[in-house]
């Protein structure tokens, strides 16, 4: 019995490991190719490079005329921090209002907010562009960050509403008895209790902004303001020459911040799951 179950365990583990390796393959290929010279990237598909070179990292990092890749990283980080702050602050307020407060036409507003999730992105691109152009916000961080302060990411509002609805109302009531108004309840009760939801929002906002290409492409014009996704695309042009080596090398570099964020906040992720388990 014991032997049999151990064998099963071995098999299961081997299977999981194989599956994991299979899923990791693209990333391993990315890392290995970033060390290959250009002539070998697509002609030699083996994972272990026949020739190892650091040139890709050097040329990739030096970037294009005066703008180094470090600049793109910095721009991306600034942009991500601003959107994270904006989203967390505004979406949590909106979610609190929908989850706890009573106001007229609440259901209508809620429905309207949900509709914005379902509205395809493409429908709003040109009107938005015209609006931001009229405001003279093109080539600034404005179009990418300021709307976040108005809780425009309805997905996160919805996520936090669900979380806040799960918090016991008795806590609010006891806070009211102790003399808290709606703002203090939001600040002293809801925010600390909703920390896991806030962190989830922050992580998703960070990663989505980090990976977003099109809106950054649209609103940023000066290369000095370019972010990582735009910087990576600068290496590629299928109609003439693409610099695949540096592009792959810088892709590896650009994975680092996302990984750091994820692993350093992983603890809260786990904590969030355990608290959501007992909160009801």
């Amino acid at each position: 019995m014991n032997v049999y179950s151990r064998r099963t365990a071995w098999l299961v583990h081997a299977f999981i490991l194989a599956l994991g390796l299979l899923m990791l393959y693209p990333i391993l290929w990315l890392i290995s190719s970033s060390f290959k010279p250009d002539s070998l990237i697509f002609s030699d598909l083996r994972l272990w490079p026949a020739e190892v070179t650091l040139d890709n990292y050097v040329t990739g990092w030096s970037g294009l005329s005066k703008v180094t890749f470090g600049r793109y990283l910095l721009n991306s980080i600034v942009l991500c921090l601003l959107t994270v702050v904006g989203n967390v602050a505004s979406c949590s307020m909106a979610a609190y209002a929908f989850g706890r407060l009573n106001f007229s036409l609440k259901k209508v507003w809620f429905a309207l907010m949900m509709v914005t999730i379902m509205l395809p992105h493409h429908v709003t691109i040109i009107p938005q562009y015209i609006l931001f152009h009229k405001l003279d916000w093109i080539d600034t961080l404005g179009p990418l960050t300021l709307p976040k302060l108005l809780a425009t990411d309805a997905f996160f509002i919805f996520l936090m509403i669900q979380f806040i609805r799960g918090l016991p109302r008795e806590l609010d009531e006891s806070a009211t008895i102790d003399g808290c108004g709606p703002i203090q309840i939001y600040w002293r009760m809801i925010l600390p209790l909703a920390l896991p939801a806030l962190i989830t929002t922050a992580i998703f906002t960070f990663i989505w902004t980090w990976d977003d290409f099109f809106s950054q492409l649209l609103y940023l014009n000066s290369p000095g303001k370019y972010t990582v996704p735009l910087g990576l695309r600068l290496f590629l042009d299928s109609s003439s020459q693409s610099n695949w080596g540096p592009m792959l090398a810088m892709s590896v570099v650009s994975l680092v911040p996302s990984l750091i964020i994820f692993f350093s906040l992983q603890k809260y992720f786990v904590e969030g799951i355990s608290t959501t388990g007992i909160k009801g």
Partner: peptide, 18 residues
């Protein structure tokens, strides 16, 4: 204002429309 080939026409079309 330079970019990779990816997204060039999308961006140009939006700029023109805008």
């Amino acid at each position: 204002e330079y970019l990779g080939a990816d997204g060039y026409w999308d961006k140009l079309n939006t700029l023109v429309a805008g």
